[in-house]
Design a protein around this nucleic acid. Structure first.
Lengths: 221, 221
DNA sequence: GGAGTATTTAAACGAACGTTTGAACTCGGG
DNA sequence: CCCGAGTTCAAACGTTCGTTTAAATACTCC
């Protein structure tokens, strides 16, 4: 095999993820990425073709990484509405912990937030490869928990609102820390945030639930 | 009077707000701002001292503008828990409409989101001048509605979660539009979002309410 | 072991950035 | 009427950016 550039590629993507997520696409120079990755400046253009293409490579890394994470959460359909509610709140807790605490998760959240406010082709890849499937899956759980049509506007918006709470706590970290008088959002603080979010979720699901004997027949049964 | 530079100053701040909010601080050049404001490039350095100082001037504009908005919402303490709940959901609707629909509101939301992910001295000004007071006020309403201690960690986090939902719908606009199959977030769509958020709020408050005869005595009565 | 391809490297390019400079211009007050 | 402070302006400065170039290096395969 010729000298394998895949290590260099991976190092560049990792360095770019750190830069893009923590300081933003514009504020992270290619020179900085190359130094962090321990390679030459020209290696970025050589392996990816340019800074913009590197952004898309980061998006693909996120899709792959989040695929692993989602797979680790299992996908067995809950047997009862109560189990679905439990699955949803457990999901919210797991995602909150991942995005606020896990190093990879913080990178994903940071990259995603910045990408949302500066949409590019990279956002399309993340949307199709991760955001949309995950959102649809949550809508399915919501149906199990409440009996509502999973693709109704109300359910889709409720799921967005739930996700939004989690991502907002990542984004507004400096403000939350100040107002909560927290020095850092660590293990204990993340637990408190996850509890607040799952409390919201539980209350909303309970209010949204259709009594079992009133659930409309699914068409085509 | 000598030629009044205040008009130029205002035009520069307005142009900077548009640029910073819609494309970000780094992505908006001083040349661009000057052109949009209809003045010379050097006017920015002359009036503000530099690009960074212009960012802080934008923060001050936001504090002033949001002061007006908050004043317009009234501050009469609600007479009953039900009235407080109504005040909170009404507040959420008004803020949602303002941040998603009103031109000034969209600028504020955009500037704020980007500032959060790239904290600077400007964020301090907005936090002290607007975010913290507004948050405290909402915590007070939460107390009226539920009987909970307004400065407890749970209440503060619940208020953050509520605000987060609103701001997230601004931030994730492109993703929401795609998933909801909306061409734009206009009047009708904003109404649907506001309804989703206030439904969350209502459910959470109801679940959090302490029965009237169990509300602990306030100390010092 | 040498040919050939893949990778890494140092150096330079043009463009765009924020800022500074010094002259032109616009006024009200003496 | 013109002095002078406040403002606007065109031009240039030095820096940093993303990208390109061409030579040097590392490795496989014949």
């Amino acid at each position: 095999m010729p000298p394998d550039g895949s290590e260099t590629r991976a190092a560049i993507v990792a360095a770019a993820m750190r830069g893009f997520a923590e300081r933003g696409f514009d504020a992270t120079s290619v020179r900085e990425i190359a130094t962090e990755a321990g390679c030459n400046l020209a290696a970025v253009s050589y392996h990816f073709g340019g800074k913009e293409a590197l952004r898309e490579a980061c998006a693909e890394w996120i899709v792959a990484r989040m695929g692993e994470v989602l797979a680790g959460l299992g996908d067995a359909p809950p047997a009862s509405p109560a189990a679905a509610t439990e699955a949803l709140t457990g999901f919210a807790r797991a995602v909150t912990r991942f995005l606020l605490l896990a190093p990879d998760g913080r990178l994903v959240a940071g990259f995603l937030m910045r990408e949302l406010s500066q949409p590019s082709a990279a956002l399309d890849a993340v949307y199709d490869g991760f955001l949309a499937p995950a959102h649809r899956r949550l809508c399915g759980l919501w149906q199990r928990a409440t009996g509502r049509d999973p693709e109704s506007a109300e359910v889709r918006l409720a799921v967005f609102a739930a996700i939004g709470q989690i991502l907002y706590f990542h984004l507004a970290r400096p403000v939350v820390e100040r107002r909560m008088e927290w020095q850092d959002i660590g293990e204990a603080e993340t637990l408190a945030v996850a509890e607040a979010i799952s409390a919201n979720l539980r209350a909303r699901i309970a209010a949204d639930r259709i009594p079992a004997d009133r659930i409309p027949e699914e068409p085509g049964r």
